[in-house]
Design a protein around this nucleic acid. Structure first.
Lengths: 197, 197
DNA sequence: TGTACATCAGTGAACGCGCGTTCACTGATGTAC
DNA sequence: TGTACATCAGTGAACGCGCGTTCACTGATGTAC
């Protein structure tokens, strides 16, 4: 079914494995659903072929983090660009954050879960893939605070926005039976609490 | 090593299994660390003895939820009782929430994780063990709003507080390398944003 | 007061499964001569 | 232009492990007579 890559192009399998992992994350319900064997099975290769490209599942997951955080950030930037005014731009970016998390719950979870072994021993000096995304929130928050004439610390405000949005989407996803207020209502209230007058 | 219970007291094993699960949750790092075999091993009985008390791991976890939510709520109530004034009481309860989560990260995670299969098929009509805890937040928030002369919806405010606190403790735990502002600073800001003037 | 028996609290042994990981191997293909 | 060979992209087969779950069993103990 699957033909092997041409000589010199073996590392294409690397991207195929990453893509297979992203696909699996869309449907995985629990942590154990994403295994080396599951990824290689989805990619159509033998389990041991995994080791030709990665040393561990963590290394593959790190690559997935980087891609997904990039997409999340792009969605937020694009949404912010379509809004008018500092606070509206911040709100649009936050809504895009929530939208991404609701559309791709499995992938979103992979970005943030405890297992998120971004803090793997020996990886101390690696970039945190989420840093530019946080910076975007902070920049938008700083602009909104400025426009409101508030002197709050943009870093603190951005940190509060981040944890609030994260809790919002995670808890909504894990408690579907709870009578949640609409997502937009909650997001707007969170943003307004943080940077509104 | 372990002697069996006296006739008629077999269900004491039920509590022993729950206690073993709580102990395991204190140290478990990933979801798979809590298994039927791990729990029975920790309790000192054979794996199949599990089925004498529970039909599934979910059933055991449900019992753990109920106990842990009770403790969390008790800690919040006790902290609120020691504070003076509506907003101070709300803040004290929120700080107790965070304190519980930081002291018992594994158990806290069990209360809220996606796997939290409280929404197990057939359990639709079971109580949500977290409901009284949420109600406590809502009551304290309503009192604080009242004292501030604000007319915001206490349910919405409580929902925002809940998700914000949850995101706060979960994200801090999963991203230890991030230069977080102090926990107290963030909690106080969240509470003040939600019910302050 | 003695004894047969039902019940109860567990265990022994085994099953099939998916997992991570290792080792030796295959066969196509580019390249040096 | 032809050929030997090194390299590359992967696979076949197997390992030991922990898991959930089932079935038949054991042995202590309370109870009915």
């Amino acid at each position: 079914m699957r033909s092997r890559h041409r000589r010199g192009e073996g590392s294409l399998l690397r991207d195929e494995l990453i893509e297979a992992a992203r696909r699996l994350l869309s449907t995985a319900e629990r942590e154990g659903d994403l295994s080396i064997r599951a990824v290689t099975r989805a990619a159509g290769v033998a389990p041991q072929s995994f080791y030709l490209q990665f040393r561990s599942l963590d290394e593959l997951l790190y690559a997935v983090y980087a891609i997904e955080f990039g997409r999340l950030r792009a969605a937020m930037e694009s949404a912010a660009g379509r809004a008018a005014g500092p606070e509206a731009r911040l709100l649009a970016a936050c809504l895009a954050y929530c939208g991404y998390a609701e559309e791709h719950p499995g992938r979103y979870r992979a970005l943030t879960e405890v297992r998120g072994r971004v803090h793997h021993p020996g990886w101390e000096n690696r970039d945190l893939p989420g840093a530019p995304t946080f910076q975007l929130i902070q920049d938008l928050a700083a602009a909104a605070l400025d426009a409101s004439g508030l002197s709050a610390d943009p870093f603190l405000v951005a940190a509060i926005l981040w944890v609030s949005l994260h809790g919002l989407v995670i808890l909504r996803a894990s408690r579907p039976a709870f009578p949640w207020p609409p997502l937009e209502t909650m997001t707007a209230a969170i943003v307004e609490h943080a940077v509104g007058r």
